[in-house]
Design a protein around this nucleic acid. Structure first.
Lengths: 244, 244
DNA sequence: GTAGGGAAGATGTAGGACGACTGTCAACCG
DNA sequence: CGGTTGACAGTCGTCCTACATCTTCCCTAC
């Protein structure tokens, strides 16, 4: 059960352990409701201290994946039928679609360098008129339209040689390559009924969408992207795990 | 800065500490971007061990409220002045409204004991035909309608003397009193356009809602309630904090 | 058969120690 | 003079040991 040696280094041990256990839970190696190995067991198996094990368990508990019971053990949370990709986990839409068992594809509709609008300057906390790259894309899962995405990335300080790449591949991957990996996002959820949104032969009628209006932040707290994603109602399962 | 003595007992020290620091962050005592006291400081001020402090900080970090930086310190997450009261924190609608600075009120529209429907038996994992209490309520903030709520609570094993109270006060409070405090909820988000939902003089037109379709679970993993809450679009700020 | 008690195992908390990383600032060098 | 280097204090990451508290289960006593 030991982690691959390549995992070590870079991030903290606890973080790696949490990620490893998390993947094992997701893969079903640890079934919902089942008891995890005791802290002492995990100490032996992963060859880390109990502090590290407990730190990792705490992280997973805060994420709602496990339930640590005093005097009894740690248990995989049971939601009576499977945990899905939660909205509170920050990852690219493509990755989320792939995790749900579908094949993602992004189709670029427009790509433009222009000054930021008033809304964008406010959301991103950048000066008025600062240059941004605006993207309009269509998100497909198994060739069916699931969302229309409008992304804005401030270009000030962004590596020039990577600008063209922003509109091409994964936004997350390119941002990470530029050293400004999104670490957190503040997302607002809205219900939108608008016939003017969307395009293409699969344009949904009526135009009913769940809008995810979100600002992405780097670990240091600077805004790195602002995106509005209109999810076609019914085609995408939005799940939020709520804990206390 | 010590916690009130009444806080001690019941839950774990770490949980109490996390909750205390969380409230101080929310109240602005610890401003966004600001550095928290060092772990050693917190140990002295709260008179707990470093293990406890670190456990609490880890929890807050997993919730995205603080950013712990190796060798530097712990910092309150900065979202550029963005609002808090995130959707991923499980609390009653009333509490959420109150935290946003408004006065909540629930108005009961209907209350009925009946067998569970097929959907409800599936969502709650109860036998077909099991008796449930179904509630229909209107949620107001400062006397303005913000949502219509449809709640279902399975009555099997529920204390008889508390049944009437379910329809009266706070659902959460009554469930807690019955010893089945909701600890986690799996919530689905949908955009709904439906003119048949809602009632009263303030019934919104058009009927555009953000639907929060959620199953509440106890700490042990049993479903304790199923609720569909239709939030009137634009009247309630839905915020999801996404982390990784 | 049942209630009670105790042992074993599990997590919760405490305290001390050391390593690794970060930011600062003074000394140094070109 | 400016930029670099290096020492240093502060802070988080990890480990160790010990004990307290809680759960569970089994065994005993009645």
């Amino acid at each position: 059960m030991s982690m691959s040696a390549s995992l070590r280094g870079r991030t903290s041990l606890a973080r790696q352990l949490a990620e490893d256990v998390r993947s094992r839970i997701m893969s079903g190696e640890f079934a919902p409701g089942e008891r995890l190995p005791s802290e002492a067991d995990l100490v032996r198996r992963y060859e880390v201290s109990r502090v590290t094990v407990r730190t990792a368990l705490r992280t997973l508990e805060a994420q709602g994946l496990v339930d640590v019971r005093h005097g009894s053990g740690s248990f995989v949370s049971d939601f009576g039928g499977g945990i899905r990709a939660g909205l509170q986990e920050l990852r690219s839409i493509s990755d989320t679609i792939r995790e749900m068992g579908h094949e993602p594809r992004m189709e670029r509709h427009a790509s433009e360098r222009r000054p930021a609008t008033a809304t964008e300057t406010a959301k991103l906390g950048i000066p008025v008129g600062a240059e941004v790259l605006a993207l309009e894309r269509m998100v497909l899962a198994d060739e069916q339209v699931v969302a229309y995405s409008f992304d804005v990335v401030p270009l000030d300080g962004f590596p020039v040689e990577l600008v063209h790449q922003l509109g091409a591949g994964s936004l997350f991957a390119t941002l990470a390559e530029a050293g400004i990996m999104p670490s957190r996002a503040l997302a607002e959820v809205h219900a939108i009924s608008d016939e003017t949104i969307g395009w293409g032969p699969q344009k949904p009628v009526p135009g009913l969408y769940v809008l995810l209006d979100q600002v992405h932040f780097s670990r240091r707290g600077s805004a790195v992207a602002y995106s509005r994603t209109y999810f076609v109602e019914g085609r995408f399962q939005f799940v939020v795990l709520r804990t206390n």
